[in-house]
Design a protein around this nucleic acid. Structure first.
Lengths: 248, 248
DNA sequence: GCATTAACTTGATTTATATCAAGTAGTTAA
DNA sequence: TTAACTACTTGATATAAATCAAGTTAATGC
């Protein structure tokens, strides 16, 4: 049943993302059982799709490495970016009802994904109680992240949106055990602009300002945060609020 | 086990909302089993809370009659309105993970609610397969509705937002078997403005314009749609798209 | 039923961000 | 390596909606 594990084909129990992914709180033997149903194909190259709108839903996806952009188009043909999924994040929850994807998911960089065939996964949740709770966590997270996005769009001006986006990415990398003040971000400024409901010009101007004021530098996919306090202040993040660790 | 049923205390099998609520697709006997765990208290009066942010989560709520506003505040004390829940809609999914509500839910009018104690509900889903699917539907709906909200905030101007809001409410009433061109809406214009990311002044001006152009009249909680085609056109709703029947 | 408060309306003005434009830098492919 | 394209930058201008202001109407409580 098990395949040979290569570099991109790491089992759950050897995966560094256990603490942010489904294995959280599972017993060792249950992690193995989960591992047995996980399907790990070769990584997606930049620009390849994990799924596209109208594709049939048959599995949940957990990101192992890379970034996935979830997007769609309005009737008028304008792109909408709904979020960026990082290692440990789960994709596909929105299709649980209709069993059909409504959005498209594309890799923004080389991206490894763990595929969890939904039927097998559902069977497992019946005998691994904690796995069910993990699923509920993933569901809530998806809903709450959407609300955070709306909140950002309703109540934040352009400076605050960009600052919050950068800070949020930083927090998410920190939670995953990576450096939070210097990281690679394979997301086009254009995509960020669409996600934040701004134009690329506005994002560019704001990033230029942040750079000039020595708060954040984001050039050539490398983000450097020089002044976390000021960034958080602009973002409107009071206290080191844990519930803000949302998926962008 | 069963209580005496009064006017506001109707069993699932006698409820007109079966087609939009959990009983959808359930066998008769399973509806009865669901009914047995439902807790129906006396209706909430306008202004009363179903739950408040930080309350412990212990049950899902299905609206039977009335309207619930789900809201919170930013760190700066500004209100955020996340949605309005109508009969048949399910509240509480966002708290499944943390078992604690993050938002407050208040009745905007006299509102009856069916309480589904979550533990009992979970037990039932194990023996009623279709109920589990209903739960997945409710989850997806919550996620997709949030995305629709973001899309509205990102890509629509003020006219389109107001038009889409009115049309969406109309569609939701239609799906529930009520008149779609004339209905009572116990939602303050102020709350609509907050939900749409606009000011009350802007909403007022747009409604005045829609009234002058004989498209929609919304006065004193009574909505009348005079020209559905034009409303849909302004809202940017092409075709009678079924997937647009989202919760505002 | 009257007083008080909250909701809504309408107008004048300001402003943040979009749009338009014209460029430079970076990436991709031949 | 160069050509062609895409991403990004920067400036000038336009504009949609916010803000400020002062009213009217409706709802609420005594």
């Amino acid at each position: 049943m098990k395949e040979v594990k290569s570099a991109f084909n790491v089992s759950c129990k050897n995966c560094g993302l256990q603490k942010v992914c489904f294995p959280t709180g599972l017993r060792r033997e249950d992690v193995d059982r989960l591992d047995d149903i996980v399907d790990r194909r070769s990584p997606l190259k930049k620009g390849q799709h994990l799924f596209e709108a109208s594709d049939k839903f048959s599995a949940l996806f957990a990101i192992r490495a890379g970034v996935i952009k979830l997007y769609s188009f309005t009737d008028g043909g304008e792109e909408i970016v709904h979020g960026f999924y990082l290692p440990g994040d789960v994709l596909g929850i929105d299709a649980l009802g209709s069993k059909q994807h409504q959005y498209s998911a594309v890799a923004l960089d080389t991206t490894s994904v763990c595929t969890l065939p939904f039927e097998k996964f559902t069977e497992l949740t019946e005998s691994i109680p904690n796995l069910n709770q993990q699923m509920l966590n993933a569901i809530s997270k998806e809903v709450l992240d959407g609300r955070m996005h709306s909140e950002l769009l309703i109540r934040r001006n352009a400076d605050q949106r960009v600052a919050q986006f950068v800070w949020n990415m930083s927090e998410r990398y920190r939670n995953r055990g990576y450096a939070s003040d210097e990281f690679r971000l394979s997301i086009l400024h254009r995509d960020v602009a669409v996600y934040l409901g701004l134009t690329p010009e506005t994002v560019s101007r704001i990033l230029a300002k942040f750079h000039a004021e020595n708060i954040v530098t984001w050039k050539k996919k490398e983000v450097m945060i020089h002044d976390m306090q000021r960034l958080m202040h602009i973002a409107g993040v009071h206290s080191s609020c844990d519930s803000c660790k949302a998926t962008a």
